[in-house]
Design a protein around this nucleic acid. Structure first.
Lengths: 227, 227
DNA sequence: TTTTGTGAACTAGTTCACAGCT
DNA sequence: AGCTGTGAACTAGTTCACAAAA
């Protein structure tokens, strides 16, 4: 299937991996921009941030021809373009469901604000929490208000930080309000319709894979001849 | 290269993806075990938890022959085996560096304790925080004490939740104490020696890939004919 | 000359499909 | 018959290497 020059096409499905890397490139460019660097080649960017030059070029080429042969990329310009590609040129409005320790920390997470995300509200089923605010000032609402507020406050993304047993039904509820992107921190298996983008951050899995690699190293003392 | 029957070999490098899935299987099996299920086939496990049956079998076959043909796997037994493979049969001792909102939430995260991780201590450079405790009772120490405590308290894993600008030097320090596994929540590029296992949880990247997919859907109104 | 953008080659990861065990 | 364990086939993702542009 041929691609029309540089026009974006829905049919071209961009992988999750590429999407994540674009975000990494944006952060790297911000570092260079802050340092006053004007242009950068894919090779220089790759070396400085431990990436692969060809991959950077391929990822970017997906969205247009942003580089100049013999020169590289204009840092400010590429940064601006990446912000558009990542949808950060408009304010993305976020609600956090679950006002426990983790939910509170996420609501106040500085990294989100820096990139232009607006944490609009938190929600919790526990009535004693409703009306309170996070340290950063995000107000906690009753879960029952979620549906209305998604519409009224134009919520784009729901962050789920509820206990495992509540996760599945909370996600179903969020999906039923029309939410199309979910960042889920609750453990367990969750199913959403294909039109909804679900991203899972599983802290236990991350920790356990570290434990796994430690266990392997400790146990296998036989073949030091690592090739 | 032939594999010796079912003996574990260092040379067999298990992928990050496989390691993560083992952790998912363990959680799935715990659910089944709690429900009183005695045996389960890879097919049933796959259907219930949205996994692929062949992949489950392949992942497990890497570590031994745990199944019985015609029957499936004994839930309790496979669960026990997975805990050994993941190194969860011994207590894994964890320190959290950075006692901000996120560090505090991670130190108290129930999911870690449930799986047998012991959050031993927190560390922060801010002297006013030293001596305090998280809600869950984890004490905050001065960063200067980290080196001694890694040895004295047998810390296996360091969790990094410090501001971006401090991340790189904190990781270098942790590596210099002999820590061999790091779970990093701070943004930015970090380099560790190949003997150290570094796992990066990048909240901004996760959020931005969701934003990316939202932006794509909204923008591309041309080709509704999704193949 | 330098560096992009990109087909071709390669590598990793997943799924199929079936021989063989219970 | 049912289900595992695993080569073979397939699919996805990465890196190479070079023609073309500045």
């Amino acid at each position: 299937m041929p691609r029309k020059n540089n026009q974006r096409l829905v049919s071209d499905q961009v992988s999750e991996l590429t999407a994540g890397r674009l975000s990494v490139y944006l952060r790297s460019l911000s570092v260079l921009d802050a340092a006053g660097v004007k242009t950068v080649s894919s090779k220089a960017l790759a070396e400085q941030f431990h990436l692969n030059a060809a991959q950077i070029r391929k990822d970017l080429a997906y969205f247009g021809e942003f580089g100049i042969r013999g020169v590289g990329y204009y840092v400010k310009e590429l940064k601006r373009q990446l912000r558009v590609i990542l949808g950060l040129d408009r304010t993305v409005r976020v609600a956090v469901i679950g006002a426990g320790n983790l939910g509170m920390a996420l609501a106040d997470y500085a990294g989100f604000r820096q990139e232009g995300f607006a944490i609009v509200a938190m929600f919790d089923a526990d009535r004693t929490k409703v009306g309170r605010r996070s340290r950063g000032g995000v107000r906690i609402h009753d879960m029952a208000e979620f549906r209305d507020m998604v519409v009224r406050e134009h919520i784009n993304i729901a962050v789920i930080a509820v206990p495992a047993e509540a996760a599945s039904s909370v996600v179903d509820m969020a999906v039923s309000t029309g939410i199309r992107a979910i960042l889920n921190f609750s453990p367990g298996t969750i199913k959403v319709p294909p039109a909804v983008k679900l991203k899972h951050v599983d802290l236990t899995v991350s920790m356990e894979s570290l434990s796994f690699f430690l266990a392997r190293e400790d146990g296998d003392v036989d073949g030091e001849d690592a090739d």
